[in-house]
């Protein structure tokens, strides 16, 4: 009999270097809890990370890891999943990383519905580069790159995800590890691209959207009998911000994944196909 996996089975010899009190700790704990709950051994999962405080989690979780480029975690993860469709692939990044630098990839990942899970540390600021404006920074908020306050309207990632064709769109809060754990479990189980936007206080650079600010505002959508299969209702909830901020599963739809639709991917994964039996002679013949 195998012993069930524990959260600590995913620890490394490196202890997180995040600022004490950072919301990243909650996400880290929830992700490890989820991996243990899903019975995914460290060698069975690939986590692809972006660059940021968020991506630094790469050193603190034991699994196959790929700490790629700023903004480019999604396309690398998608490539890996298409090469080995049997692999569980999770992506961890920041809001600057995924909604700013890599925004284009996000939109197209939602459309493509490759079966991976995307967890975004949404701290509404750039942490690692010391407090500049992020795409999700609230309008008017001063940051180190916008000392007089931002003038760009904040991006709403969950509304965008629904509009762009996301098949699993959810929002968690780093201050509610229990809920976040369950969301990640559900997201990983979802057959398709699953998006978990995590409201994550940055205690060092964002003094506006703090833990206590969020605690006063977040509510669970289950508590209001939200119908996550209704796109219009989901979109209306996704747009909520300010006094009330929804958390939980906002929208879900089951539709064929990229792998389902591409028949070349039936059977053996690409990565392990034989190359010594390839015969191109017929194709050569077509050029004569």
């Amino acid at each position: 009999m195998t012993t069930p996996l524990k959260n600590t089975d995913f620890n490394t010899t490196h202890f997180p270097t995040w600022c004490p009190g950072c919301g990243d700790f909650g996400i880290w704990t929830a992700l490890k809890n989820a991996l243990a709950a899903l019975e995914m051994k460290p060698s069975n999962v690939l986590i692809v990370y972006g660059i940021g405080c968020s991506g630094n989690m790469s050193s603190f979780i034991k699994s196959y890891g790929f700490h790629g480029l700023h903004g480019r975690a999604l396309p690398a993860a998608i490539g890996a999943k298409l090469a080995n469709k049997n692999l569980k692939v999770i992506v961890v990044g920041g809001d600057g990383d995924g909604y700013g630098e890599g925004g284009n990839h996000f939109i197209h990942a939602l459309r493509g519905n490759v079966d991976i899970t995307y967890i975004v540390h949404d701290n509404q600021v750039y942490g690692l580069t010391k407090g500049q404006m992020a795409p999700t920074t609230e309008l008017g908020q001063p940051t180190s790159s916008t000392p007089e306050g931002t003038v760009d309207q904040a991006l709403n990632p969950v509304a965008l995800a629904i509009a762009a064709g996301g098949s699993f769109v959810s929002q968690g809060f780093a201050g509610d590890v229990g809920q976040l754990t369950q969301l990640i479990v559900d997201a990983v189980k979802h057959p398709g691209f699953s998006h978990v936007n995590v409201l994550q206080p940055c205690v060092t650079f964002n003094h506006h959207n703090t833990f206590s600010w969020f605690f006063k505002r977040v509510y669970k959508v289950e508590s209001v009998q939200h119908d996550f299969s209704n796109k219009y209702e989901a979109f209306a909830r996704a747009l909520e911000w300010g006094d009330k901020i929804p958390t939980g599963l906002l929208y879900r739809e089951i539709r064929p994944t990229w792998v389902d639709r591409v028949h070349e991917l039936d059977g053996e994964p690409l990565a392990t196909r034989r190359i010594d039996t390839i015969d191109i002679s017929k194709t050569l013949q077509s050029f004569t």
Binding site: L46, G79, A80
Partner: peptide
């Protein structure tokens, strides 16, 4: 015919990172 994937990526940055990811996973 050859059971391969030829992916039209959203841009060249995605294309190169797709290929790197696929290669990393062994293809």
């Amino acid at each position: 015919k050859y059971n391969i994937v030829a992916k039209h990526a959203e841009d060249e940055i995605a294309a190169v990172n797709n290929a790197i990811g696929a290669s990393f996973a062994g293809s």
